[in-house]
């Protein structure tokens, strides 16, 4: 069966000087449409590039095995194209604002608010929406699925089939307030955040992992019949943060340059060195930062300038035994 590939503009705003800001969607669907619809969005933060490689991998695989596609896959490769162009997390068309705190938007609002509105309208009614993020600058993350506690009852099963390395259930609603995923969930469309960073020696490795997870989920949805990895049989096989106590947030207390050890994805023991804050002027190590407990390192700061309070690492504590 042939796959129909269709590129559409889902929202467009005329900018002052001979340019349109357009959000494009590429739809892959079998002839006749099939059953089920998965939306994959990336680049809501202009400085997060991982999603580009992931949706590229998804598209390549669909087109390589078109006979296995039995539903619709909508790919939105870059929601914040203006931010991407200047390497900026925020949306720069007015004052710098976080697009992912501006949903559901409004058709008669600012350019960004109008775009947020069009994004939501286009995704409403999908069987699942995945919003891919790549953490923040200078921070590595495992492949994670994140959700609000309010949505966990229905979303956890979706998360299992995505085969993440970790699931994080946020207890408070404020963390995702006005975000794309929380807005869609409130409006009845299931949506999840995927985190996976590109700051590795080979971003392809983690990208391939996420792509496998997405195809596994597509098979679970009946959209894909090709080979995929098998999902974990039960949620208990995936490290899952249910409570704030499951996470140990490690910060530094001195300003300086942080020099990390390579701990991401590993189990550390209490007291094990995570990295050092150095002072190049005095030629001194200001602070040795050690693991405050045993745990799985699922976030890790890379070599960068730090301030008191800068996040150095996050440990998942359930791995202590």
């Amino acid at each position: 069966m042939a796959v129909i590939k269709e590129i559409t503009s889902i929202g467009s705003v005329v900018m002052p000087i001979e340019e349109r800001w357009t959000i494009r969607r590429c739809r892959y669907a079998p002839e006749g449409g099939g059953k089920g619809r998965l939306c994959i969005a990336t680049g809501i933060h202009g400085d997060e590039m991982m999603g580009q490689l992931i949706v590229y991998g998804v598209a390549k695989r669909i087109m390589a095995q078109p006979q296995h596609l039995h539903g619709t896959v909508d790919i939105y490769p870059m929601l914040n194209a203006l931010g991407l162009d200047i390497g900026e997390r925020m949306e720069p068309s007015s004052t710098l604002l976080d697009m992912n705190r501006s949903f559901p938007g409004t058709p008669d609002g600012t350019a960004m608010e109008a775009m947020c509105y069009h994004i939501v309208q286009d995704m409403l009614g999908a069987d699942l929406v995945l919003d891919i993020h790549a953490s923040t600058n200078n921070k590595s993350e495992l492949y994670e699925v994140r959700m609000n506690a309010n949505d966990a009852k229905t979303m956890l099963e979706h998360a299992r089939c995505l085969c993440p390395e970790l699931i994080w259930i946020y207890p408070d609603k404020i963390s995702f307030s006005a975000s794309l995923t929380s807005t869609l969930c409130e409006m009845g469309t299931p949506a999840l955040i995927l985190e996976a960073d590109e700051r590795r020696r080979r971003p392809q490795d983690i990208s391939e992992h996420v792509v496998e997870g997405i195809f596994c989920k597509m098979r679970d949805m009946g959209i894909w019949t090709g080979d995929t990895v098998n999902p974990p049989k039960s949620l208990s096989e995936i490290p899952t943060i249910h409570n704030p106590e499951d996470v140990r947030r490690v910060t530094c207390e001195h300003p300086g340059i942080y020099v990390p050890m390579d701990r991401i994805g590993g189990i550390v023991r209490e007291g094990e060195l995570l990295g050092v804050v150095i002072d190049a002027l005095e030629g001194e190590a200001l602070e040795e930062i050690s693991a405050p407990c045993d745990g799985l390192v699922f976030s890790q700061r890379s070599y960068s300038a730090v301030y008191p309070g800068t996040l150095i690492a996050r440990l998942y504590r359930k791995e202590r035994t």
Partner: peptide, 10 residues
């Protein structure tokens, strides 16, 4: 009061 205006902007 900016010098430029984009479509849709209040």
């Amino acid at each position: 009061d900016g010098p430029f205006i984009s479509e849709h902007s209040p």
